[in-house]
């Protein structure tokens, strides 16, 4: 019994290490012309339910600050700085949306939208956020998986 548990822990650790090794660092993300990012940042499929939470969380994605999203109508006050995201999966390919989440400035030059997975080229970042991305690689994949569920057609 003990031995079995030990093996299980060993396997979990090995898996976690393997997964960690596959995470693409912010500086290593490959953008295509036009700003799309084809490769998953983690190799682990995004969880749309987790993505929905991250999307709404003010300290994580805080996406409602700027975007209307009818799927989250239970939350009051949706911002209108960016475009509404209803049906966003009908309008964009997954790779393009990943690129927009990672660093939208490669898709829309000069956009107000913050980059959610970037650490370089920033000025005067508050100490506690230095060297950190707004979202982790897996959180980006989770939000992306959630966005891909927003279909109207």
């Amino acid at each position: 019994m003990k031995r079995k548990a030990f093996l299980l822990i060993g396997a979990t650790v090995a898996f976690a290490t393997m997964a960690a090794a596959e995470v693409v660092a912010p500086g290593d993300v490959v953008f295509e012309d036009g700003g799309a990012v084809a490769q998953s940042l983690t190799g682990v499929a995004g969880d749309p339910a987790a993505g929905r939470e991250i999307f709404a969380n003010r300290k994580l994605g805080n996406c409602l600050a700027c975007h209307v999203n009818a799927d989250l109508n239970e939350q009051l006050f949706h911002g209108e700085v960016g475009p509404p995201l209803d049906g966003v999966a009908d309008r964009w390919e997954e790779a393009q949306l990943r690129g927009i989440l990672v660093n939208s400035k490669n898709t829309f030059e000069g956009t107000i939208m913050p980059a959610f997975y970037r650490t370089d080229g920033l000025n005067r970042v508050l100490e506690k956020f230095q060297g950190k991305t707004v979202l982790t690689a897996q959180q980006v994949e989770d939000v992306l998986a959630y966005l891909m569920t927003l279909k109207e057609e």
């Binding site: 600050a65 920033l122 005067r124």
Partner: peptide, 22 residues
């Protein structure tokens, strides 16, 4: 532009005044 969110004063108060942020 400054900070982790990479925004200047102008991004909000010149380019987007009048719109709702949350």
């Amino acid at each position: 532009r400054v900070g982790q969110l990479d925004l200047s004063c102008a991004n909000c108060h010149e380019d987007n005044y009048g719109t709702m942020i949350r």
